[in-house]
Design a protein around this nucleic acid. Sequence first.
DNA 1: AATTAAAAGTTATAATATAACAATTATTGC
DNA 2: GCAATAATTGTTATATTATAACTTTTAATT
Lengths: 171, 171
Amino acid sequence: MTFTFQSKHDHSSCINSALTKAEAICEQSGQRFTKVRRLVLEMIWQSHRPLGAYELLPAIKEAGFNSAPPTVYRALEFLQEQGLVHRISSLNAFIGCTHPGHQCSSCFFICDQCQLTVELESPKLASAIADITADMGFVVEREHLEIVGKCPNCCKSPTVNSSAVKESGAE
Amino acid sequence: MTFTFQSKHDHSSCINSALTKAEAICEQSGQRFTKVRRLVLEMIWQSHRPLGAYELLPAIKEAGFNSAPPTVYRALEFLQEQGLVHRISSLNAFIGCTHPGHQCSSCFFICDQCQLTVELESPKLASAIADITADMGFVVEREHLEIVGKCPNCCKSPTVNSSAVKESGAE
DNA sequence: AATTAAAAGTTATAATATAACAATTATTGC
DNA sequence: GCAATAATTGTTATATTATAACTTTTAATT
């Protein structure tokens, strides 16, 4: 298992690693990893909860860019196309992809108390989906599984835990 | 398997059966299955693709109800609480639940060509999720799997097939 | 350096959803 | 049945999320 809900880790190294990977991926695909794109990806990675597009605008403004919605939506669209971020559709919000370039089905664990959201690649899920779709005549292009509940930390403390929220880094 | 992508079936009996079940479910839970709620559920069932809230408004107006957004959102919220409709979050749209009252995990097959959307209960999915979450310390409250691709009919005809769209019944 | 393509700036607006309060309708206890 | 209460619906206004369309700037190509 590649993942745990461990709260202690060097997150700045996560961010750096994500940015370095992103650079490589963009170079490979012949796309430009511009400053706004980098900034948006960095902000998204700074948060452990999915960030809404409009939450990203203030920091974009501070960084000296135009902070109208199209700026952030373009960056987000680009990052999604490159497989660098995912949209969590039930939240209208975005989170960094933890394994860009991989193909395996993944699912998102979303804590409805602190919004901590974690992506987990799962061969089991992949094979379950393969099983379900077998002989159905439906050609799968993509899939998206959101699992909502309480993260380990919030299970312990039923009062509101806002750690993930505070780490949003978006203002 | 309870489901196929069979295109020929008596859909009016599907709708009637869904409405009858809904009545029973509401009675059981001591909730009122009012005319607007019934109308919204009926319209949703008339379509084989998920309908957006604003698509439902014209018919609500025709039926003589106030057609401001809160009317339809309230009905949709109620129907979701009763487990009678699902929100397809990637589409901001709603579709009837094919097995209200059941507990089993289900997934949604969404054709990105004709929007035909089908819900399938899947014990395999349920057990895959149970597997994935085991020993993780995450307490699952609900989950939502959307599988996007091409339905059997659209696989055959790569040109746009709008059958599901036409059956929307929403204007 | 000129040309072209890509990205970002800018303005406006579309699409989706909810807040807040008033009026109405249904239910409950008498 | 009738008053009191609760639930639902009506109504107005607005919040939130997202995109269209066109211009300007920046980067890549010849």
